[in-house]
Computed example of a mutant assay.
Amino acid sequence: MRELVMLLLIGSLFIQLPLAVVMYFDAKRLDLRNPEQYWLGVVVPTVGFIVILYYFSERRNLPKKSDADS
C-alpha cells in the first residue's frame, strides 16, 4: 500500500510540475499580479489540481498588474 501511495504522489508531481511552469509563464504573459502564487499553488501535491482548475477557468478575470497601478 505504501508503494502505491508513493507512486501516486510521484506521478502527480510529474503531472503538476510541467503544468506549474506553463501556468507561471502564461500568468507572466497575461501580466497578472503575483504570477508566482499560481505556480506555488500548483506545486503542492493533490491541492495543486484544484489550483489548476481554478486558474484555467478564471485566467481571463484574474487581477492584472495594471489594475493595481491605477
Results as ranks from 00 to 15, higher is better:
Met1Lys: 14
Met1Asp: 10
Glu3Trp: 10
Glu3Asn: 05
Glu3Ser: 13
Leu4Pro: 04
Leu4Lys: 07
Leu4Asn: 05
Leu4Glu: 11
Val5Pro: 09
Val5Gln: 15
Val5Ala: 14
Met6Pro: 10
Met6Asp: 07
Met6Cys: 09
Met6Thr: 12
Leu7Arg: 11
Leu8Gln: 10
Leu8Met: 11
Leu8Ala: 07
Leu8Phe: 12
Leu9Pro: 08
Gly11Ile: 02
Gly11Thr: 00
Gly11Pro: 05
Gly11Phe: 07
Ser12Cys: 12
Ser12Arg: 11
Ser12Trp: 10
Leu13His: 13
Leu13Arg: 15
Leu13Pro: 07
Phe14Tyr: 14
Phe14Val: 09
Ile15Arg: 04
Gln16Ser: 09
Gln16Leu: 14
Gln16Asp: 06
Pro18Ser: 01
Pro18Val: 02
Pro18Glu: 01
Leu19Tyr: 03
Val21Leu: 10
Val22Met: 03
Val22Thr: 02
Val22Ile: 08
Met23Ser: 13
Tyr24Gln: 02
Phe25Pro: 01
Phe25Trp: 07
Asp26Arg: 13
Asp26Ile: 08
Ala27Asp: 03
Ala27Trp: 03
Ala27Cys: 09
Lys28Tyr: 05
Arg29Thr: 09
Arg29Val: 08
Leu30Gln: 11
Asp31Cys: 05
Leu32Asn: 01
Leu32Lys: 01
Leu32Ala: 05
Leu32His: 04
Asn34Glu: 09
Asn34Ile: 01
Pro35Glu: 05
Pro35His: 13
Glu36Pro: 00
Glu36Val: 07
Gln37Gly: 07
Gln37Glu: 01
Gln37Met: 05
Tyr38Thr: 06
Tyr38Trp: 12
Tyr38Ile: 06
Tyr38Glu: 08
Tyr38Ser: 07
Leu40Ala: 04
Val42Gly: 03
Val42Ile: 12
Val43Thr: 10
Val43Ile: 13
Val44Phe: 11
Pro45Thr: 00
Pro45Ser: 04
Pro45His: 03
Thr46His: 14
Val47Leu: 15
Val47Thr: 11
Val47Asp: 10
Val47Glu: 14
Gly48Trp: 03
Gly48Ala: 04
Val51Cys: 03
Val51Leu: 02
Ile52Lys: 04
Ile52Arg: 04
Ile52Ala: 13
Leu53His: 12
Tyr54Thr: 01
Tyr55Asp: 04
Phe56Ile: 02
Ser57Asp: 06
Glu58Leu: 14
Glu58Pro: 02
Glu58Trp: 08
Arg59Gln: 08
Arg59His: 09
Asn61Val: 03
Leu62Ala: 09
Pro63Trp: 13
Pro63Leu: 05
Lys64Ala: 05
Lys64His: 00
Lys65Pro: 06
Ser66Val: 00
Asp67Phe: 06
Asp67Lys: 01
Ala68Leu: 04
Ala68Pro: 03
Asp69Pro: 00
Ser70Cys: 00
Ser70Met: 00
